[in-house]
Amino acid sequence: MKRISAEVLSSRTFGDHQSITIVAPEIAERVRPGQFVQVAMPPDREFILRRPFAVAKASREGGWAGTLEFAFRSQGAATDWLGSVRAHQFLDVIGPLGKGFAAPKSRTTCLLVGESVAIGQLYFLAEELRGQGKRVDMIVWGRSQGDVYKPIEGKRLAQTFALLTGDGSMGLRGSIEQALPGIAERCGSDVIYAAGSRSMLRAVARFAQEVHIPSQVAVQESMGCGWGQCFTCVIPMVRRDGAHYDNVRSCTEGPVFNSSRVAWDVWFPPEPARPIDAPSPQGADAPTDPDTVDGQAAGSPGSTSMEGDVR
């Protein structure tokens, strides 16, 4: 990975989202779908952390060679600032970071499932899978029409393209969870790739487990650094013994994980609401006992932050 000063080629609006294309040959050359970049915020502002963005496109040849694109929704001071960045300004970018999606060796019918702006990285993946001769089908979801990121790209790339919105303003009204079984069966999907909210990823993981097909999910956790130093972006992963879990860094071990390895019930307890369970000054950072999968499943506020402001 490299830290570079990258010129902004363009900043465009797509519905509720914005996409920025930067000149970053060192990163564009190597980045794989599912990997991300860390973009520095301007100095002398209140917000200091970089913001992670999954790469939505990387061009390696033709007129756009050496450029890459990421997308986000303005939802706070930092992304508002990023939204105001114009062509020919420079961004301080580190990448490529993390582990991307693994292409299937033998399986050939791939179902890509994404929500909102996280769909962008699946278009990048779809390009790659198509290039390898795989069949690509897609389900994309947005809260409303404006929240569906670049649906035209999906129509171009996918053999079957299912579009859903929460309010029915575009495509069918419904949720990914409802649509997934029928579409997966019709398409004969033998592997699923998903990117979006934690609840959707869990639904995909459940379904994949039920029908015994592998799935990979791209998580979006709040991050301090993005290159493995701060241990803040962890998610619980089941150990090989199946009985315990480890908090692993989603920036270096992920952000793409095999969904069967994620300890979903620990990460996302069935009963999410939890008051401040009295984290006294002493208790806040008090070491916990070695964690067990069935044990203390402490809840966590369900905010996710990739493509957004650190929450």
């Binding site: 209140e46 917000f47 200091i48 952390l49 956790e221 709040s222 991050m223 301090g224 701060c230 241990f231 803040t232 972006c233 962890v234 998610i235 619980p236 480890d246 908090n247 620990v266 990460w267 806040a284 950072d285 916990t288 070695p290 964690d291 402490a298 809840g299 966590s300 506020p301 905010s303 932050s305 402001d309 650190v310 929450r311």
Partner: peptide
């Protein structure tokens, strides 16, 4: 092993962490 996330948040000119 530490607790679950989120483990980092921003505060004005700083960050709040609990690993």
């Amino acid at each position: 092993h530490g607790g679950p996330g989120p483990r980092v948040a921003e505060s004005p000119s700083g960050i709040l962490t609990a690993t």
